[in-house]
Write a protein that binds this DNA or RNA. Structure first.
Lengths: 341, 341
DNA sequence: CTGTTAGCGCCTTCAA
DNA sequence: TTGAAGGCGCTAACAG
């Protein structure tokens, strides 16, 4: 019984060939005869050698077959979000097909230093909460693909958020409407609140601001004025925050008759609360969502929203990374007309 | 502008100290004076050296701070399951607190060989679809903690599934009832079907069979006979499969008046379909679930089910791994009485 | 087609 | 407290 683990060198000695031959047998089949290779592999199996040590391979080759998925927030939060988990689904299946493994990396970490030396690349889903990560990613020698936000000169996967927001809002808005917007991460606050004149964050890079632009363009088209106090900020697309915001909106006076929500989770919570309060949707209140999650389709009335395929985003992000695509990729979206407008 | 990446050796030369000193400055603060250490760290920062290369450290030290989470099925499937994602949530937050990173590993992979050489250990959530993984895990020199199933001599996290099933069934069953069971992975079939006399799988190790034992014990207590044709097998806890099974149960004649479901997802789908068909719950049909997901509590009527804290399981699994606990750990559960019995 | 050898970048005794 | 040196296990270039 061998106490210590076998190394390639041990095995070479035992079988009576050189180390290079063993290595080639496992890694470069073209470098030796088929019969020899099979014989060696058989011998290895017999003596219980399952192949070259991966840790050593990582150091030597500089690749690990590990891809880090940098999430916008803590892993805990992201995994339970239906949109994010659908993205992970798409990304992981594309990676798995290519023999890559997925390492989850929290967007609220301080640095990518822990893993940058050995991962093969980064997929960055949403703008990381910690801005230092963005700097490091931008400077990293490893391939990076961003999704739902951009880093200069790095490939990315996005939809046209401004246009999507414009279109969905256009279905809901009419001249004379009174409108409120339930937005995501518009200002720097850990709590649900109206934005008033708080300084906006990430105006250039965040998809939330693109969506806001689209909403406001649709409003302008119809001469509808949207003031700062009709725009809410939610720190996350989360039921809890959504409920607070929904309550504020529905109890404000005069109550808006159109509410544009930057996620389906927010919109659904608003919808439920409105129904509980006996408000008729869409007669007294029109609602639009964003994302196109399943639950939005099952809801009664069903939600009018922007459908984007998160799993396709995941697949495209993985492919872009693996194929070393350099360009930015804009995916299609689709407005799904439900019964809430 | 340095073209190539700095190594510890380069840095030592530039600063004019030995490599050991640099290494110690980063890894073993007690090996040199505080002032010297700080000076060195400052110098390193200035010349753009961010610390020892991780790939080399992994090889040299034999640890990587990476923990593999082996899932029962493909990652795609598991991530969208609310129970599994809650588990991931718990595990990831406990790992993150301890500076560990999480690598997702699919349970339908062929082997753990891809990662076993460098990860610090394995958390195995549910019995992997590919049995070879179990063999390899059992033989692995790296620490392993299993959850919701067992490997001989390896630490594990479980609840008492037999007792939990017995208790929840006891709330639903009465003498003279006609009962059906919607089970999970009872036989080897990729489709929803009644088990009849098909050979059962993993009878010793699977939690599904423990739950079945509990249900049957509760039935026996009341002289209720449960035949093979009243027991369904679903390959996954998935809405799609659940819908098929629900339809078969509700359209069978005579229709059972109690249905015991091995997951809340299954129970909720059954509940919805029953309501659609105009069947009164619980008057004409009693339903129990298993898991205690949020949606079960929000449903109307709310579901009677077994609550187990998946996130706590995740935390405990991570802790057991990190603390090298050797013993098996049985966590508490709780029956939540809803309106479906 | 096979064998020899020089590192990949680091950590950790050991001696000073 | 510091410096020198031997691997951790493997791969790729090169020579045969």
């Amino acid at each position: 019984m061998n106490k210590t683990k076998l190394t390639l060198k041990d095995v070479a000695e035992q079988i009576g060939v050189s180390t290079a031959t063993i290595s080639n047998a496992f890694n470069r089949p073209d470098q030796l005869s088929k019969s020899k290779r099979e014989e060696i592999l058989a011998q290895c199996k017999k003596i219980g050698y399952s192949g070259p040590n991966k840790a050593a391979q990582i150091l030597r080759k500089g690749t690990s077959n590990i891809v880090a998925l940098v999430l916008a927030d803590s892993i805990s939060y992201m995994v339970s979000d239906p949109v994010a988990s659908t993205f992970i689904k798409g990304a992981s299946s594309a990676l798995q097909e290519n023999g890559k493994h997925l390492l989850l990396y929290a967007g609220d970490s301080n640095s990518i230093a822990d893993v940058v030396d050995f991962v093969d690349g980064f997929i960055c889903y949403g703008q990381p909460r910690n801005v230092n990560l963005i700097r490091e990613l931008a400077a990293s020698p490893k391939p990076v693909v961003t999704v739902d936000f951009d880093i200069d000169n790095k490939p990315s996967i996005n939809i046209d958020n401004e246009e999507a927001a414009y279109q969905v809002a256009s279905h809901a808005l009419n001249k004379g409407d009174s409108v409120a917007i339930l937005g995501l991460r518009l200002i720097d606050s850990p709590a649900t609140c109206r934005i008033y004149d708080s300084p906006l964050i990430d105006v250039e890079t965040s998809i939330a601001h693109r969506r806001l632009d689209g909403y406001l363009r649709a409003a302008e088209d119809r001469n509808v004025v949207v003031t700062d106090e009709a725009i809410w900020h939610l720190p996350e697309s989360d039921r809890h925050f959504a409920r607070q915001a929904a309550k504020e909106v529905l109890t404000s006076s005069p109550r808006p008759n159109v509410v544009l929500c930057m996620s389906d989770i927010i919109a659904l919570e608003l919808l439920h609360m409105a129904l509980e309060m006996g408000i008729k949707v869409p007669q007294e209140l029109k609602i639009t969502g964003f994302d196109g999650i399943e639950e939005a389709e099952r809801a009664r009335p069903s939600l009018t929203t922007v459908c984007q395929s998160s799993s396709q985003k995941g697949v495209e992000a993985a492919k872009s990374l693996l194929d070393h695509v350099k360009s930015k990729n804009t995916l299609p979206f689709e407005v799904r007309l439900g019964e809430t407008v």
